[in-house]
Design a protein around this nucleic acid. Structure first.
Lengths: 108, 108
DNA sequence: ACGGTCAATCGTCTATCTGCGATTAACGAT
DNA sequence: ATCGTTAATCGCAGATAGACGATTGACCGT
């Protein structure tokens, strides 16, 4: 079987999938910004309009716990990192990861 | 304790959130590629290594129905469009949307 | 008209996301 | 040591994603 016409000269015998680690990397980073609230949070941090969780809460129509959750997701993606500053936490963008995201998207 | 009562009532002081429609737009496009399988599908279509659903199925370790679901999501995002070609459907990338995604990410 | 091929949809199941209030934990200041 | 501020976590609920097999639908050939 597998008599499908050679569509593009590429191996028609099913190359299966290559490990393609960048697919997971890109998907993970994209997932981090796949929610409007997280996009807005990220933008606030990029523009340095906000830095602490409380500031973000006051700018978004979301509860503090919800914002904290989104921040957690952003942190896990690596796009954002938090520096403990006393009882507060100052969040800032991880420029390297942000550039990596741009690079991966641009290379699509 | 204090009085966290009027949580949403005391927001008037700050700028709240700007409508920021691009946040939703970016989140929507990011969501489309927020899954490794969809990243790989998109890449196959970009490289034109594959065009039909069946071809994609043979390259990914996923069932046909699952691939069809992912294609549906990609279509709904606008990144991909399908042209009916007889009993088959030839999927191809919507370059405009792809460029828009790159633009939005780059503008972060 | 009838199969055969291809893709979409249906139904189901599990796992995760999203949101919130309430609670807990960490820290600085008094 | 205690209090007030700030953020993280817990527990709960509803909604949705993700995967699959099975079915349905569309279309081309004979």
């Amino acid at each position: 079987m597998a008599k499908k016409t050679t569509r593009k000269g590429c191996d028609t015998t099913s190359a299966e999938l290559k490990p393609d680690p960048t697919a997971d990397e890109l998907a993970g980073l994209a997932w981090a910004i796949a929610h409007p609230a997280r996009v807005q949070i990220l933008r606030l941090l990029i523009k340095r309009d906000a830095c602490m969780c409380g500031e973000i809460v006051s700018r978004l129509p979301l509860a503090q716990s919800t914002v904290s959750q989104h921040l957690k997701i952003l942190k896990e993606s690596g796009l954002v990192q938090g520096e403990v500053d006393g009882p507060k936490v100052c969040y800032c963008v991880n420029e390297d990861k942000l550039q990596r995201l741009k690079q991966l998207v641009d290379g699509l």
